[in-house]
C-alpha cells in the first residue's frame, strides 16, 4: 500500500505555485527545528569535549575513572541485553504461537516498564533488596550485596529495557503465523531445529532491531541506575553516572569527553537502526505485518 502511495505522489501533477511555496516553507521550518532542537545539543557535546584540543580530550578519556566506568557499562549491557533477548524470544513464542486465557493481560503486563519512571524503577529494587527491603536482612546475613553493587545495576537495567525485544517480536510473529513451523513439526523436525532452522531466520531482523534498542538504552540508562548504584567510585559508576559526577564537580571537559563517547554510541545506534529499517527484508516483513492486521 505504502509504495503505491509513493508511486502516486511521484506521478501526480505538479502543484500550483502557492502550494509549492507552502510546501517549501514547511520543509524549511521542519529542518530548522530539527537542527536547532536536536542537532545543536549533539554538536555542543562534541564542541565542549574538544574545546581544549585533542590532547586534553584524549587525556580526559584515559583516566582510570572513565576506563572503569566504560568496563562496568560494558559488563552491565553484556548481562542485561542477552537476558532480555532470551525473554523476548520466549514470551513472543508463547504469545504469538499459542492461544491461551489471559494472553492480553500478559501483553499489557510486559509493557509496564514503559510507563514507570526510571527513578521509580530503581526505587522498586531498593524496596526488595535494600537493607529494609523484603530480602534485605537475609541478603546482609549472607553478606550478599545487590543495592549499591553491580547486581542492582544489572537488575535496574534489565527492568528499563524489559519490553524492547518482546515488543518488536510479538506483533511480527503474530502477523507471520505459524504455518512454516507447523509444517516443520509435521515433517518430523525436533523442537530445537524448528526454532533454529525455521523461526530464527524469519525473525532475525526484528530481533536485531529490538536488541539494538535494548543495548542503546542499557548503555545510557541513568535514572534507574542512579538510584541503586550509590555512586561508589571505581565500583558502581557507569558511564552516564560518570558524566553526572564529573559535571557536578565542574570538571566540564572530562564530563563532555565521557558524554561524547556516549553520544557517539547513540549516533551509531541511529545509523544501524536506519540501516535495518531500509533493508529490503525488514521492509517486506513490515509490509506483511500491515496487510495481515
Amino acid at each position: 500500500m505504502r509504495h503505491l502511495i509513493r508511486l502516486r505522489a511521484k506521478i501526480e501533477r505538479k502543484p500550483s505555485l502557492p502550494a509549492r511555496t507552502a510546501r517549501l516553507a514547511l520543509v524549511i521550518a521542519a529542518i530548522a527545528f530539527v537542527s536547532l532542537f536536536l542537532v545543536l545539543p549533539l554538536a555542543s557535546v562534541f564542541a565542549q569535549a574538544f574545546s581544549q584540543g585533542w590532547r586534553v580530550y584524549l587525556a580526559a578519556i584515559h583516566t582510570g575513572e572513565i576506563v572503569d566506568a566504560l568496563k562496568l557499562t560494558g559488563l552491565v549491557a553484556a548481562i542485561a541485553v542477552p537476558l532480555n533477548v532470551v525473554f523476548g524470544i520466549a514470551s513472543s513464542w508463547a504469545i504469538a504461537r499459542f492461544d491461551f486465557i489471559g494472553k492480553k493481560l500478559l501483553v499489557s503486563l510486559i509493557d509496564i516498564p514503559l510507563a514507570v519512571s526510571p527513578v521509580v524503577a530503581g526505587m522498586m529494587y531498593v524496596e526488595v533488596f535494600g537493607l529494609h527491603g523484603w530480602f534485605g536482612s537475609w541478603l546482609s546475613n549472607h553478606n550478599l550485596h545487590v543495592i549499591f553493587a553491580v547486581p542492582g545495576i544489572v537488575l535496574a537495567t534489565i527492568f528499563v529495557t524489559f519490553p524492547f525485544v518482546a515488543r518488536e517480536l510479538i506483533p511480527f510473529m503474530q502477523a507471520q503465523g505459524s504455518d512454516e513451523e507447523q509444517a516443520a513439526v509435521v515433517l518430523g523436525a525436533r523442537p530445537f531445529s524448528v526454532f533454529w532452522r525455521v523461526t530464527l531466520p524469519n525473525i532475525k531482523w526484528p530481533l536485531l532491531y529490538g536488541t539494538i534498542l535494548a543495548a542503546a538504552r542499557s548503555i545510557g540508562e541513568f535514572g534507574a541506575v542512579s538510584v541503586v548504584s550509590g555512586h561508589i567510585r571505581g565500583r558502581t559508576v557507569t558511564m552516564p553516572l560518570a558524566v553526572e559526577m564529573l559535571y557536578n564537580e565542574f570538571n566540564f571537559t572530562a564530563a563532555f569527553a565521557a558524554a561524547s563517547l556516549l553520544s557517539f554510541a547513540a549516533v551509531i545506534t541511529l545509523i544501524v537502526k536506519k540501516a535495518i529499517e531500509l533493508s529490503t527484508e525488514y521492509q517486506r516483513s513490515k509490509a506483511e505485518q500491515g496487510s495481515n492486521e
Partner: peptide, 18 residues
C-alpha cells in the same frame, strides 16, 4: 527521519548537560 529518534538513543544525562 533518523535524527527524530535521537532523544531515544541519547543517554538522558548527556541530553541534560548538553
Amino acid at each position: 527521519d533518523a535524527l527524530i529518534d535521537l532523544p531515544f538513543a541519547l543517554p538522558t544525562a548527556v541530553a541534560g548537560i548538553a
